[in-house]
Each structure stands twice: as C-alpha cells, then as structure tokens.
Computed example of a mutant assay.
Amino acid sequence: MKFIFLFLCFYHFYSYSQNSESSLWIKDMEIAKKISKKEHKPILMYFSGSDWCKPCMMLQEDFFDSFEFKKFTDSFVFLYLDFPRNSDLISTERKIENSKLLELYNKNKQFPLINILNSKGKVLDKISGYSSLRDPRYHFELLQKFMK
C-alpha cells in the first residue's frame, strides 16, 4: 500500500514538473499577445536554434534552466521561436509563422535573441548573443527591468 501511494505521489510530481516546464513556452504570437494583454505582462520572445546554435544551448542551460530564472516565470509571457535545422523538430506551419516573425523581429538573424515586447508586439528592449564566458548576468538584468 505504501509503495502504491509513493508511486502515485512520484508520478504526480513528475508529470506536473514536466507539464509545467513545457507549458511555460507559447509558440504562437497571437496567443502570446492575448495573454499578455489579459494578464498585463510583457512578452519575452526568444529566438533559438535548438539543434545547431551552441550559444543558444549554453543560454538554455545557464539561464532558462537555472533556479534563479524560476522567479521570473510569473512576470512574463514566454514566446519560443525555434529555427532548428532538423525539420522533424518543427511543423511546416510553425516554420512558416516563425519565419514571418524572424523577418519582423530579428532582421539580422541573431541567435540567441531575446526581445521584450508589450501586448501589442512593440519591442521594448532586447539582448542578443551569449558569451562563451557563460555569464547570464545581463540576461537577468534585462528581465529585472520588466519584472512586476
């Protein structure tokens, strides 16, 4: 009986942590804008090359996966725009939509790039790149400026 109870608790915790992490990121700009307007939160728009961009991978590990980043999760709407080289990682429709947003918000095609937007899609601030020194301090400073 104890085993079943422990198993159910572990399963619930594991599935919650998996779902909460994946549900943090929205992949549709219009949905992000609606949530931003409704909740009065800025949008953090993140351009990533998840399977080829080494600075993106380092930023993911040092910044987005960090314990310190968790304190910002209630203050932003998170929009993830991925540009993988492996076409199996993204649908054709998502690739088309992301490409349109790339032309509007990342004309220089910098990866990684974080834009902070208002609910109407206006860029309020941004930070591009990530150093091989692996210091996410400036990324945290950017978020701190817009934290409620």
Score class of each variant (00 low, 15 high):
Ser48Ala: 15
Phe5Ile: 15
Asp28Met: 09
Pro136Glu: 05
Met45Phe: 06
Pro84Asp: 12
Tyr80Glu: 12
Leu44Thr: 05
Glu103Gln: 11
Glu97Val: 03
Phe64Thr: 01
Phe76Lys: 01
Lys122Gln: 10
Phe72Asn: 02
Asp51His: 12
Asn118Arg: 05
Asp51Lys: 13
Arg85Trp: 06
Ser36Pro: 06
Arg94Thr: 14
Asp82Ile: 08
Ser15Gly: 05
Lys100Ile: 06
Tyr16Asp: 12
Glu141Pro: 04
Gly129Ser: 06
Glu21Cys: 03
Arg94Gly: 02
Met45His: 09
Asp125Gln: 07
Leu102Thr: 02
Cys56Ile: 06
Gly121Gln: 08
Phe3Trp: 05
Leu142Cys: 06
Asn98Leu: 09
Asn108His: 10
Leu81Gly: 00
Lys120Val: 04
Ile96Tyr: 13
His139Gln: 09
Phe78Cys: 03
Pro112Arg: 01
Lys100Gln: 13
Tyr138Cys: 03
Asp135Glu: 13
Lys33Phe: 02
Glu30Leu: 10
Asp51Pro: 14
Phe69Asp: 05
Ser48Tyr: 08
Tyr14Met: 10
Glu93Phe: 04
Tyr130Thr: 01
Ser131Asp: 12
Lys109Ser: 11
Pro136Ile: 04
Leu102Trp: 04
Ile4Arg: 10
Phe7Asn: 02
Leu104Phe: 07
Ser15Cys: 07
Phe47Pro: 03
Leu101Ile: 04
Leu124Tyr: 08
Pro55Gln: 09
Phe63Glu: 04
Tyr130Arg: 02
Leu143Thr: 06
Lys100Phe: 07
Leu44Arg: 02
His40Pro: 01
Lys70His: 09
Met1Ile: 09
Asp74Gly: 14
Gly49Lys: 07
Leu89Met: 15
Glu141Leu: 15
Leu89Thr: 06
Ser50Ala: 07
Phe47Val: 08
Ser132Lys: 14
Phe10Gln: 07
Phe111Pro: 00
Tyr11Met: 13
Trp25Pro: 00
Glu103Gly: 03
Met1Pro: 11
Ser36Asn: 09
Leu113Asn: 01
Met45Trp: 06
Ile96Thr: 13
Phe146His: 07
Tyr105Ala: 02
Ser131Lys: 09
Glu30Asp: 15
Asp74Val: 02
Arg85Pro: 00
Phe13Gln: 11
Phe140His: 03
Asn118Ile: 08
Phe67Trp: 07
Asp74Gln: 14
Lys2Gln: 13
Asn98Tyr: 06
Gln110Asn: 12
Ile26Arg: 11
